[in-house]
């Protein structure tokens, strides 16, 4: 509250673009402990609800000629299934349910986060890091289990000149360990940036003279964010598939 006063003193504008990312307990004033129901919990639950509505209620009739909702569910299924099959090959298809789970969670969290007054779980580095490192650890374990020590061939470019191979191997190892970091920060960063930007433009709307510009800018950024929400879910998923492909077929 003190800074609100402070901000208004400074120039009549209030910028708190990051307040929206705060995790707050919904039913108690106490500190957020690990099982308290927070806004994050709520919006994750709504994402689950959307998945259930679309994929369980929508396909309830098991119609050969699908209803609209069932078509949408089938569209998602077909899209991700084809992606997994195309990228990882036939032996990657058994990981499809896991990849589909991650995709749907990110997709719905991203899009629900675009509703006014909502909250975006995937803008949190804690969430995306679990997803990113989860993929990283799973893929590394799958790589070693499937290929044994030959999984390390992933880092050894056999078609590069012999002199360069150790150098390339070092770069490959570094890039391998950077993967989960970039994987998770990309998602959280994109969403945080977009949501914060909308908030900043909204802050400018307090000045009557720039309010129309501000509204137009919010609309434009919002449109961009709709794209980002879909694209980031897609990017996260296809990168997961690519990492999985590396684990299943490490030879370059």
């Amino acid at each position: 509250m003190a800074t609100d006063v402070h901000g208004e003193e400074a120039g009549g504008l209030v910028f708190h673009p990051l307040d929206q990312f705060e995790v707050k307990s919904l039913f108690s004033d106490g500190p957020v402990n690990f099982i308290s129901i927070t806004n994050s919990t709520l919006w994750m639950a709504i994402a689950v609800l959307c998945v259930v509505l679309l994929f369980v209620m929508g396909t309830r009739k098991r119609a050969i000629i699908p209803t609209r909702t069932q078509s949408i569910a089938e569209l998602f299924y077909g899209f991700i299934y084809k992606m997994v099959e195309d990228v990882t090959g036939h032996d990657g298809v058994k990981y499809f349910p896991y990849i589909f789970t991650v995709f749907l969670f990110i997709f719905f969290a991203n899009f629900l986060g675009l509703l006014p007054l909502s909250y975006t779980p995937t803008a949190q580095i804690a969430v995306t890091a679990v997803l990113g490192f989860g993929v990283f650890i799973a893929v590394t374990i799958i790589g070693f289990v499937k290929n044994g020590a030959s999984f390390l061939g992933l880092f050894w470019m056999s078609d590069a000149p012999l002199v360069l191979r150790p150098v390339i191997a070092i770069i490959e190892v570094i890039s391998y360990f950077v993967r989960p970091v970039s994987h998770s920060i990309r998602l959280a960063g994109n969403l945080t940036a977009g949501h914060a930007m909308i908030k900043v433009f909204a802050g400018f709307a307090a000045i009557a003279a720039v309010a129309p510009v501000s509204v137009v800018a919010i609309a434009a950024v919002y449109g961009l964010e709709v794209l980002v929400a879909g694209i980031q879910a897609y990017v996260f998923t296809i990168l997961t598939c690519i990492y999985l492909k590396d684990a299943l077929h490490p030879a370059h």
């Binding site: 995790v23 957020v32 402990n33 690990f34 099982i35 308290s36 927070t38 994050s40 919990t41 994750m44 639950a45 994402a47 689950v48 789970t101 991650v102 969670f105 779980p121 949190q124 804690a126 969430v127 679990v130 997803l131």
Partner: peptide, 13 residues
């Protein structure tokens, strides 16, 4: 807030 978010994320997934 990490433990809370991670816990509920895992539940959700």
């Amino acid at each position: 807030t990490y433990s809370n978010q991670i816990f509920w994320l895992l539940v959700t997934l």
